[in-house]
Design a protein around this nucleic acid. Structure first.
Length: 350
DNA sequence: CGTTTTTGACCGGCGC
DNA sequence: GCGCCGGTCAAAAACG
């Protein structure tokens, strides 16, 4: 879960983005339709042919609205719990710090510890001492962005969450490192099979550093590194699914230690990833500016604060909605989910 | 000219 | 010890 969410009071945005009173559902469809350019291949757009179908869709929307509300409630609950836990944790940390916990964290520079020195051909690994002070609390923005990523069916987040654990104990080190790999998550994105670029838009800037054809998949796998922050440990592998060529599987390793890159100054609606090769080279073009800047907000009095937070909340919701509707992966996931449900609920077509 | 992508070579882990 | 394989490096090419 994201510390960010809980620490973001304005982020209690109710996921019930407009669902509500019955008729609004139709309006929602009308609103969403032009925006969410559903991937054509997924299901043919049927312009409301039959009334029963419309009714069914409406019902479905309502149902999903209810579901959505439930989920948002759950999310709120989880966030609350998280907050409690976090405060407990910080208490513990401060307590131990006061107890002279100067050296309790091994800080074996994560990898530096007992990693074989010959990791690289170049001896530049020697200079790893001063530069990369791994920021203690990695900003979980990535995770937040991954929320839309997990199309339940396929998502397989192998959370080795305890990344970079202490491996001072010597021999079990190897195993520990295996189990405590950096956080890994997978993202399944629907992509046009004719589009050969292994580009997954996730709002970050990536630089490709390698490509390989693997044994189990004829499609090449591309390796990316976060290019926004040189010290960012996150890596990404992108490869087309062996079974379904239209699906890109992006495997993320680690967490960004920085916020999301700022949105491009203009013309935000373009496709952009930073790792794009399709339209030449978008040098600085993060796609999804989901991230509210996490700055210290000025202290306001009651009314002001309320108004401000309301405003922020709205902006945030709008931003997120925009981001999501722009994000092809989200669209794909949405479409998959919707079509699945629709098929599920309409046995008449059988 | 600076940055990113391409691509062949290299390296280490793992199984036999 | 050997070969296979996935991951990474780094020089060269490409691009704006």
């Amino acid at each position: 879960m994201d510390p960010w969410i809980s620490s973001q009071p304005s982020l209690s945005l109710d996921l019930r983005v407009g669902l509500p009173p019955a008729s609004a559902a139709v309006a929602a469809v009308a609103m969403v339709k032009p925006k969410v350019l559903v991937e054509e291949d997924f299901f043919h757009q049927q312009p409301l042919k039959k009334d029963p179908e419309v009714a069914a869709l409406e019902a479905e929307l309502k149902r999903m609205g209810a579901e959505n509300r439930q989920l948002s409630e759950m999310l709120a609950a989880v966030a609350a719990k998280y907050e409690a836990l976090q405060s407990q944790f910080s208490d513990m940390v401060t307590a131990s710090a006061n107890n002279g916990g100067g050296g309790n964290i091994p800080s074996s520079t994560s990898e530096g510890g007992s990693v074989s020195p010959s990791r690289k051909r170049k001896s530049e690994s020697l200079d790893d001492s001063p530069t990369p002070p791994p920021p203690p609390p990695p900003h979980p923005h990535a995770a937040a962005h991954h929320m839309h990523v997990m199309p339940g069916a396929a998502a397989a987040a192998a959370g080795g969450y305890a990344d970079q654990t202490e491996c001072t104990s010597g021999e079990p080190c190897k195993r520990i490192r295996e189990e405590c790999k950096p956080k890994i998550s997978k993202l399944y994105v629907h992509a046009d099979p004719s589009d050969l670029s292994l580009v997954v838009k996730d709002g970050y800037q990536w630089r490709k550093y390698g490509q390989k054809v693997t044994k189990d998949n004829p499609c090449p796998r591309a390796y990316f590194r976060c290019s926004f922050a040189p010290a960012c440990p996150v890596k990404k592998k992108v490869q087309r699914s062996a079974e379904d060529n239209t699906i890109l599987v992006a495997t993320y390793e680690g967490e960004h230690n920085h916020g999301q890159p700022p949105p491009p100054p203009q013309s935000a609606a373009q496709n952009s990833d930073g790792s794009g090769k399709s339209a030449g080279k978008p040098p600085h073009a993060p796609a999804a500016p989901v991230v509210p800047h996490r700055q210290h907000e000025p202290v306001l009095n009651g009314e002001q604060a309320a108004a401000a937070s309301e405003l922020i909340r709205r902006n945030l919701a709008e931003q997120m909605a925009m981001t999501l509707t722009r994000d092809p992966s989200f669209k794909a996931a949405l479409v998959t989910a919707l079509s699945g449900r629709i098929l599920e609920l309409s046995p008449t077509k059988d």
